Deep mutational scan, measured.
Amino acid sequence: RTSMTEEYRVPDGMVGLIIGRGGEQINKIQQDSGCKVQISPDSGGLPERSVSLTGAPESVQKAKMMLDDIVSR
């Protein structure tokens, strides 16, 4: 199975929601999608934060859908 890494961007203000209490939400995204999700520690003052998604292409797609779902709330 091919693994890929894709850079994705999320609004900086949503990072807390994506990570969740004690990392609960980000762990759920990783478990449900099978994709490794790494959020860059700092946006460098930019409105968006970089997130790197690593996994099989379908896992990366699923993680993106889950991120979009959180961001659109």
Rank of each mutant, 00 (worst) to 15 (best):
S59L: 02
T5Y: 05
D68N: 13
A63D: 01
Q30D: 00
E7S: 10
C35F: 00
E48R: 08
S3T: 15
I70L: 14
R1H: 05
Q30R: 10
R49L: 07
I26Y: 01
G16R: 10
Q61D: 07
R49E: 05
P47F: 08
K28V: 03
P41V: 09
R1C: 10
Q30V: 08
D69R: 11
N27H: 09
G45Y: 05
A56E: 13
K62H: 06
V51L: 14
M65A: 13
G44E: 13
K36E: 12
I18V: 07
G34E: 05
Q61N: 14
V71Y: 06
P41W: 05
P57I: 05
R1P: 05
R49H: 14
D32C: 08
L46M: 12
T54R: 05
V51S: 01
K64G: 01
G34N: 06
G20H: 02
G23A: 07
L46A: 11
D68W: 02
G22V: 04
V37S: 01
I70W: 04
L53R: 00
P41K: 15
V37K: 00
V60D: 01
S3P: 14
S52G: 05
S72D: 12
K64M: 03
V71W: 06
V71Q: 05
L53K: 00
R21N: 15
V71M: 11
Q25A: 13
S50K: 14
E24V: 09
V15I: 11
S72T: 11
G34F: 00
S72K: 11
D32F: 04
D42L: 06
P57N: 03
L17W: 09
E7G: 03
K36I: 09
V15H: 06
G55N: 00
V37I: 12
P47S: 12
I26K: 04
T54P: 00
M4Q: 15
V10F: 08
V71F: 07
L46Y: 07
S33V: 01
I29Q: 01
G45R: 07
S72Y: 10
D68V: 03
P57R: 08
G23N: 05
R1S: 10
K62D: 01
P11G: 03
D42Q: 13
M4E: 10
G44V: 08
I19C: 09
L17F: 10
D42H: 07
G23C: 06
I18H: 03
S43Y: 06
S59W: 00
Q30T: 07
L53I: 10
M65P: 02
G34V: 00
T54S: 11
E24W: 15
K36D: 14
S72L: 09
G16N: 09
P57M: 06
T2R: 07
Q61Y: 14
V15W: 10
Q31Y: 07
L53T: 02
G55C: 01
S3Y: 15
V37C: 08
V71R: 06
D68K: 09
S52N: 07
G16Q: 12
V71T: 12
Q31A: 09
E48L: 08
K28L: 05
T5R: 07
V51T: 01
I19Y: 13
V15S: 06
R49W: 06
M14G: 04
E24H: 12
D68G: 08
K64L: 01
M65T: 13
I18N: 04
V10P: 03
K28I: 05
E7P: 08
L67Y: 01
P11K: 07
S3C: 15
V51G: 01
I29A: 01
R73T: 15
T54G: 02
I39F: 07
T5V: 07
A56M: 07
E24Y: 14
S72G: 15
P57V: 06
G44L: 08
L67T: 02
D68A: 06
M66W: 03
D42S: 11
K36T: 13
G44S: 10
M66Y: 04
T2D: 13
G22Y: 06
V15P: 03
I70A: 05
L53A: 01
K62Y: 05
I19R: 10
S52F: 13
E58L: 05
L46N: 08
V60H: 01
S50A: 11
R73M: 13
D12N: 08
E7Y: 14
A56R: 13
S40P: 13
S52Y: 15
G45A: 06
V60W: 00
Q31F: 09
M65G: 12
T54W: 04
G45D: 09
E58M: 08
G20L: 00
I18T: 05
D69T: 09
L46P: 07
L46F: 09
R73A: 14
V71S: 05
E7K: 09
S72P: 05
S72R: 15
I26S: 01
T5L: 04
D69Y: 05
A63R: 00
R73Q: 15
S33A: 08
T2S: 15
C35G: 01
L46C: 14
T54Q: 07
T2W: 02
E48W: 12
I18P: 04
I70N: 02
L53W: 00
Q30P: 01
C35N: 00
Y8L: 10
Q30H: 04
V71H: 03
L17T: 14
V60C: 04
E58N: 05
G13Y: 13
L46R: 13
P11H: 02
T54H: 10
K36G: 03
G23V: 05
D42W: 06
G55D: 01
D32M: 14
S50F: 06
G45Q: 09
D12G: 11
T2K: 13
I39R: 02
P47A: 14
E7C: 07
T54I: 06
K36S: 11
D32K: 11
T5E: 05
Y8K: 03
Q61R: 14
A56Y: 10
M14V: 09
K64I: 05
Q38A: 14
E58T: 07
S50W: 08
Q38M: 13
D68E: 11
R73N: 08
G45S: 09
Q61M: 11
K62E: 05
L17Q: 12
L46T: 13
G16V: 02
Y8G: 02
S72A: 14
G55L: 00
S59G: 07
D68L: 02
I70V: 11
I18C: 02
K36L: 11
G23Y: 04
D68H: 05
P47Q: 12
R1G: 10
D12T: 15
G16E: 14
Q31C: 10
D69E: 13
Q30M: 15
P47L: 09
Q38T: 14
S52E: 13
D12Y: 06
S33G: 00
I70C: 08
L53N: 02
D12K: 12
V10I: 12
I19F: 09
L53C: 04
I70P: 02
G55A: 00
R21E: 15
R1K: 15
S72M: 12
V60T: 02
G20P: 02
L53D: 01
I19S: 08
G55V: 00
Q31E: 10
S3I: 15
M66A: 06
D32W: 05
M14K: 12
Q25T: 14
A63Y: 01
G16K: 10
P11V: 03
G23D: 06
S72N: 14
I19L: 13
K62N: 03
V37L: 08
A63N: 02
P11L: 04
G44Q: 14
C35D: 02
L17A: 14
P11C: 03
Q61P: 02
P47Y: 12
R49F: 05
E6D: 07
Q30I: 06
T5A: 05
R9H: 15
I39D: 03
D69W: 04
E6F: 09
Q38W: 08
L53V: 04
V15L: 15
R73W: 06
G13F: 06
S52Q: 13
M66P: 02
R21P: 13
E48T: 13
V15Y: 06
K64A: 02
I39E: 01
L53M: 05
L67P: 02
P57W: 05
